[in-house]
């Protein structure tokens, strides 16, 4: 067991963890932050994406022990301080960028990382950036549209239908 201390969504947490404990397990089982989902075991689906020191990372492919001292952001910490949806979350709702909601936390975390890096991404940049985020429900149309809208671009000309 190793003691780890990290900041999760602005709060400091300290826990004893097993060496083989993944961040997804740490968040879900130890901190009861179940918004970070596990959709595969080959590090491809992206339902578990979180930010570690600002970097977009698959929570299922990093150990809790590796995050000692890190700043972690998860979907639970994304809303505005007053609890309202942030710009990206709001755009996902406005443009129906989610259906079953399972991939959604990872999508939102990826979108946030993308917009930090590229404030006004093109459609192609968004699609390329989402290479590691699989959605089975939406066909991606409304996810791409939502991210474009969240970046302040006019999406009214995209086939609304």
């Amino acid at each position: 067991m190793t003691k780890v201390t990290m900041t999760v969504n602005g709060k400091t947490v300290s826990k004893e963890v097993r060496g083989n404990m993944l961040m997804t397990e740490f968040l879900r089982d130890e901190l009861h932050l179940t918004g970070t989902h596990v959709g595969c075991d080959t590090s491809q689906c992206g339902a578990c994406n979180i930010h570690v020191n600002g970097a977009n990372v698959k929570g299922c492919t990093i150990f809790a022990a590796e995050c000692d001292g890190a700043e972690i952001a998860t979907i639970e910490g994304q809303a505005n301080a007053d609890g309202s949806l942030n710009v990206i979350q709001q755009a996902f709702q406005d443009h129906h960028g989610l259906q079953c909601g399972f991939c959604t936390p990872g999508m939102v975390m990826s979108a946030a990382a993308l917009l930090k890096e590229t404030p006004k991404p093109t459609e192609a940049e968004i699609r390329h950036y989402l290479e590691g985020n699989i959605c089975r429900c939406t066909g991606y149309h409304n996810i791409v549209k939502a991210i474009m809208a969240a970046s302040g671009q006019d999406v009214s000309s995209i086939a609304a239908e």
Binding site: G35, E76, T104
Partner: peptide
């Protein structure tokens, strides 16, 4: 339902 899914509050 989106509000809970977008904030990690879904209950799967």
């Amino acid at each position: 339902e989106d509000v809970r899914f977008l904030t990690g509050a879904g209950k799967y």
